[in-house]
Amino acid sequence: GLEHMADEEKLPPGWEKRMSRSSGRVYYFNHITNASQWERPSG
């Protein structure tokens, strides 16, 4: 619920959580730099 939404908002600017269609794993994508990574971004 609300706790999940608050957790999402802690991601650094530009980052969003996405799911890989090929593997079904969650990864993180930065739409500003077009960077993507499996680890949760910090800072």
Rank of each mutant, 00 (worst) to 15 (best):
G14R: 01
H31A: 11
V26E: 07
F29I: 05
M5F: 11
E16S: 08
E9C: 15
V26N: 04
N30I: 03
R18Q: 03
N30A: 01
L2G: 14
Y27T: 01
S42G: 11
S42R: 10
Y28Q: 00
R21A: 15
P41F: 02
E3T: 12
P12S: 02
R40A: 07
F29S: 01
Y27G: 00
A6L: 12
Y28T: 00
R18V: 06
Y27E: 02
S22Y: 11
R21N: 12
P41A: 02
Q37P: 00
N30H: 05
Y28E: 00
F29P: 00
E8H: 09
E3D: 12
S23I: 05
R18H: 04
G24N: 08
H4C: 15
L11H: 01
Y27A: 00
V26G: 02
W15A: 00
S36D: 02
G43Q: 10
Q37G: 01
R25L: 07
L11K: 09
G1I: 13
I32V: 09
Y28I: 00
P12M: 02
R18F: 05
L11Q: 06
K17Y: 04
P41L: 02
A6D: 13
D7T: 10
T33S: 06
L11Y: 03
S36G: 05
G1L: 13
G43F: 15
R21S: 14
V26R: 04
R18K: 08
F29Y: 14
G14D: 04
E8N: 10
E39Y: 08
E16K: 04
G14T: 01
Y27C: 09
E3A: 13
A6Q: 12
H31L: 14
M5N: 13
M5D: 14
S23W: 06
V26Q: 05
R18T: 03
E8V: 09
Y27K: 01
M19T: 14
P41E: 01
E39G: 08
N34G: 15
L11G: 00
L11I: 04
H31K: 12
R25T: 05
V26F: 11
R18Y: 05
R40I: 08
Y28P: 00
Q37I: 04
R18W: 02
K17H: 03
L11F: 02
Y28G: 00
P41S: 01
N34M: 12
P13L: 08
F29W: 08
Y27W: 05
W15L: 00
G1A: 13
L2I: 13
Y28M: 00
D7L: 09
E39S: 06
H4L: 11
K17W: 03
L2M: 13
F29G: 01
L2V: 14
W38N: 04
M19I: 15
S36I: 15
S42E: 10
P12K: 01
L2Q: 13
S23K: 08
R21I: 15
K17R: 13
S22R: 15
G14L: 02
V26T: 09
R40F: 10
E39R: 07
R40M: 07
W38D: 04
T33V: 03
W15G: 00
N34E: 05
Y27M: 02
P41T: 01
V26D: 03
Y28V: 00
R25P: 02
A6H: 12
L11T: 02
H4G: 12
P13D: 08
W15M: 00
G24V: 04
E9Y: 08
G14F: 06
S22H: 14
F29N: 00
H31G: 05
F29K: 03
Y28W: 05
S42V: 12
R18P: 00
K10D: 14
A6K: 10
N34P: 00
R40Q: 05
E16M: 06
Y27I: 03
R21W: 09
M19A: 06
Y27S: 02
N30E: 01
M19H: 10
S36H: 10
S42H: 11
E3K: 08
A6T: 11
E16Y: 05
M5K: 10
Q37D: 01
A35Y: 09
G43S: 13
T33P: 01
S22A: 12
H4M: 13
H31N: 12
T33M: 04
G1Y: 12
E9L: 07
S23F: 09
W38V: 05
K17D: 01
A6M: 10
T33G: 02
P13G: 05
R25W: 05
H31M: 10
W15V: 01
D7W: 07
L2T: 13
N34S: 08
S23Q: 09
A6I: 11
P13Y: 13
A35S: 11
Y28R: 00
F29M: 02
S23D: 10
E3G: 11
S36F: 15
R21G: 11
Y28D: 00
V26K: 03
R40L: 06
Q37W: 03
I32T: 07
W15H: 00
G24Q: 07
P13I: 08
Y27H: 02
E3F: 03
E9S: 08
Q37C: 06
Y27P: 00
P41W: 02
A6N: 10
S36R: 15
R18E: 01
I32K: 07
K17A: 10
A35T: 14
A35V: 15
E3W: 03
P12W: 02
A35M: 14
A6V: 12
R21Q: 14
A35G: 05
L2K: 12
N30V: 03
S23E: 08
E3Q: 12
P12R: 01
L2N: 13
N34Q: 14
I32L: 11
E9A: 08
W15P: 00
K17Q: 09
G1Q: 13
E39T: 08
S22I: 14
E3H: 12
H31F: 14
R18L: 06
R25E: 05
P12G: 04
D7G: 10
G24A: 05
W38T: 05
N30F: 03
E39M: 07
A6W: 10
D7N: 11
M5P: 10
